[in-house]
Each structure stands twice: as structure tokens, then as C-alpha cells.
Amino acid sequence: MEKDTTFKEHFFFELQRRDSLNNSLSLLVGIVALLLGGTLTMSKGASLDASLSNIFRIVTLLLTTAALAATVYYMIRSIFGYTYAYFPDTKEMLKTRGEFISFYAAQHKCLETAKSAALEDYAAEVEAIYAECTARNGGNNDERAAWAHKANRWLVISLVLFAVAGVAYLTNTVGAPDKPVRVLIDNLE
């Protein structure tokens, strides 16, 4: 008779899904860091004059910063606050299996029948452990994926706003005349 491994396979699937979520968030962290650096660089060039193009640039930079803050918030919600369930230690499971066999050996006269019944109940216990762990891990992964999806949505908004702010930044800085540099020469001997 072939053993059913549905619960075991699903348990490992949820662990792989957790790792996949972690890996996808590492790319997000890198992109957010680049956007924050670019936003900071563009904000250093902003002046307080009341021209329409400068006000537009400041507003788009503020909106970009707010969208990046939302992205970071959702990333943090996707990373922290989750406890995953794992299969018990193999030594503990070996001990439990031995206890099942000892219990059934005391109940039955035939050792082969006792061992067969014990292993059948033990397999059911193992499946119950896998199912319980999988349910918890699957719920965690579903919640984390929802937060990661929101973080990705806000990242796209951040990228669009960053591009608009970049166009405004370039139109203000490319056409602007260079400021003369004043040099003081001392000690001309």
C-alpha cells in the first residue's frame, strides 16, 4: 500500500513559500533604498522660490517620500510578527513511535498485529502534526503575501512619482544658469 504524503508535501510547500516571500522582499528593500537616495539627492537641489516648476517638484518629492514611507510600512508588516510551526525533533518522534509500539504490544497478544496497529496510529499522529503546522504556516504566508502585495503596489506608485519628480528636477536644473564661483587669491608674491 502506498502512503499518502499530501500533508507532508503541503507542509514543505508552505516553507518554500515562506522563503520565496522573504526573497521577494529583499529586492524591494534594495529598490526602496535607491529611490530614497535619489529622492534625497533631488530634494537637495530644491529652492524656496515660488515658481510653478519648483512648487511642482517639491510636491512630487513629498508625494514620492510619502509613497516610499507606505512601502516601508507594508514591508515591515510583511516581515515581522509571524511565528512558524515546525515538525518536532526526530529524536522526540522516534521516542513517540516507540511509545506507540509499547502501548499496543501490551494490548495485543500478537506482536506483529500490535506493531501494525501502532504504526498505523503513529502515521495518523504524524499527519495530524503536519496538518496543524501547515495550517498555521499557510495562514502566516497568506497574510504576509497580502502585505507584500500592498508594498509592491506602493512601490510602483513610488516609481511613477519618482519619475515625475525626476522630470521636474531635470527641467529646473538643466536650463538653470550656472552660479559663478568666487575665488579669492591670497599671497601673490
Rank of each mutant, 00 (worst) to 15 (best):
M1W: 07
E2Q: 09
K3T: 15
D4T: 11
D4S: 07
T5Q: 12
E9R: 12
E9G: 06
E9L: 14
E9T: 12
H10G: 08
F11E: 08
F11G: 08
F12N: 01
L15C: 03
R17G: 04
R17M: 01
R18I: 03
R18D: 11
D19E: 15
S20K: 00
S20P: 05
N22W: 06
N23H: 13
N23Y: 12
S24Q: 15
L25Y: 01
L27K: 10
V29P: 01
V29Y: 07
V32Q: 10
L34I: 15
L34F: 14
L34D: 03
L35P: 00
G37T: 12
G37K: 00
G38C: 10
G38S: 13
L40H: 11
L40G: 10
T41S: 08
T41F: 13
G45A: 10
D49S: 10
D49K: 01
S51G: 13
S53T: 12
I58F: 10
V59E: 05
T60Q: 06
L62N: 08
L63D: 05
T64R: 01
A67R: 15
L68N: 07
L68Q: 04
A70K: 14
A70C: 09
T71E: 01
T71P: 04
Y73G: 00
Y74H: 04
M75V: 04
I76V: 14
I76C: 02
R77H: 09
R77V: 03
S78T: 05
G81R: 15
G81N: 13
G81D: 15
Y82L: 12
Y86P: 03
P88T: 15
P88L: 14
T90P: 02
K91S: 04
E92Y: 04
M93P: 01
M93N: 02
M93C: 05
M93Y: 01
K95G: 00
I101E: 04
S102H: 01
Q107A: 13
H108T: 03
C110M: 15
C110P: 04
L111K: 10
E112R: 14
K115I: 03
K115D: 10
S116V: 06
A118E: 02
E120L: 13
E120R: 11
A123H: 03
A123C: 02
A123R: 00
V126E: 10
E127S: 11
E132G: 02
E132D: 01
C133L: 08
T134V: 05
A135K: 07
N137V: 05
N137P: 08
N141L: 02
D142H: 00
E143Y: 12
A145E: 03
A148Q: 12
K150C: 03
N152C: 07
R153S: 07
R153T: 14
W154K: 00
V156N: 09
I157L: 09
L159N: 10
V160L: 15
L161N: 07
F162Q: 13
F162P: 05
A163V: 13
A163I: 14
V164R: 06
G166W: 10
V167Q: 05
A168L: 14
A168N: 12
L170V: 14
L170F: 11
V174A: 15
A176V: 09
P177L: 15
K179D: 04
P180G: 03
L184K: 09
L184M: 00
I185Q: 10
